[in-house]
Amino acid sequence: MVYTARYGLEFNPFLKNSKEILVSTKEHKEVTFRLDYLAKTKGFGILTGGAGRGKTTAIRSWASSLNPSLYKVIYSSLSTLTVNDFYRNLAEELGAQPSFRKPDNFRVIQDEISRLALEKKKTPVIIIDEANYINNAILNDLKIMFNFEMDSRDRAAVLLAGLPQLNSTLRLGIHEPLRQRIVMNYNLDGLTKEEGRLYISEKMKGAGCNQPIFEENAIEAILNAADGTPRIINKLCNASLLVGDSNQINLIDAGIVMQAINDSELG
């Protein structure tokens, strides 16, 4: 990408598939603290946030920090799996042979969780992303599946992550028994203006940039349009770099950002 050279970037840090640069905001530290608590306490945890607020990035960063000799991390996304596929995938990821029938997979999953927890002394950490797609049947099943009657302590940490409507689903009366087992519930808010500025500068620094790229009014315009959502900050920074380069402008101002906003159909 030729335009990265104009702005002194080794790569474009605002693209999704570029090298990940984690910005340690106050919110990110709080999320990590809550997730660590869930892993130690075990039971059910809920992490919600609007689209593009950084849930998956935070979860991925946290999961990679867990000691593999103490935790076994299993990740699945409900947006891509049918109900039966969900159970088969969970059994397989736990290291067991999945069955075709749901009751058999239930038993296989429970047996494998017990084996990991009691014999291997490992805590299974089961992350269910995009859990706002979860249906009532799966929620009821989860309550049963992770209920080990002979043991008063939970044997696994189960994190449900998704959009804020996940909490609305859990507030339904039929889910009261499951809700009582939730030990952590956190909603990711957007970045503050101060954190937004830090986010942009840390991303650029992580990409080897030692020169100013955005004027202060340009950063202000990006942050106003993004409303604290990291995904939109990335989108607008990237679009601004493209517009700036095509106009052969070395220092991006608010005018370039407004053009980028229009190009991104956010204006």
Rank of each mutant, 00 (worst) to 15 (best):
residue 8 G to Y: 08
residue 161 A to C: 06
residue 189 D to M: 10
residue 257 V to R: 00
residue 63 A to D: 11
residue 64 S to F: 02
residue 60 R to V: 09
residue 155 R to I: 14
residue 150 M to V: 04
residue 94 L to G: 02
residue 160 L to W: 05
residue 207 A to E: 04
residue 143 K to I: 10
residue 225 A to Q: 12
residue 206 G to I: 14
residue 122 K to P: 05
residue 171 R to M: 15
residue 119 E to H: 14
residue 24 S to A: 15
residue 184 M to L: 12
residue 103 P to A: 03
residue 170 L to R: 08
residue 228 G to T: 05
residue 57 T to I: 10
residue 37 Y to C: 05
residue 61 S to F: 12
residue 47 L to D: 05
residue 81 L to M: 13
residue 180 Q to T: 09
residue 202 E to M: 07
residue 181 R to S: 04
residue 76 S to C: 12
residue 52 G to M: 09
residue 108 V to A: 12
residue 15 L to A: 05
residue 223 L to P: 02
residue 29 K to P: 04
residue 54 G to S: 07
residue 175 H to A: 08
residue 63 A to L: 07
residue 120 K to Y: 15
residue 5 A to N: 04
residue 225 A to V: 08
residue 92 E to C: 04
residue 8 G to A: 07
residue 95 G to Y: 12
residue 195 E to K: 04
residue 54 G to Y: 05
residue 233 I to P: 00
residue 178 L to P: 00
residue 3 Y to S: 07
residue 66 L to K: 01
residue 56 T to G: 13
residue 211 Q to K: 09
residue 113 I to N: 08
residue 124 P to V: 10
residue 96 A to E: 13
residue 47 L to G: 08
residue 85 D to V: 12
residue 141 D to Y: 03
residue 64 S to W: 03
residue 263 D to E: 12
residue 260 A to R: 01
residue 223 L to Q: 00
residue 154 D to K: 06
residue 237 C to P: 02
residue 191 L to K: 01
residue 18 S to L: 05
residue 235 K to E: 11
residue 137 A to V: 08
residue 168 S to N: 13
residue 254 A to I: 02
residue 90 L to I: 13
residue 143 K to V: 05
residue 147 N to E: 15
residue 41 T to L: 04
residue 209 C to T: 07
residue 193 K to F: 13
residue 69 S to R: 15
residue 134 I to D: 04
residue 13 P to H: 01
residue 228 G to Y: 02
residue 101 R to G: 13
residue 241 L to C: 09
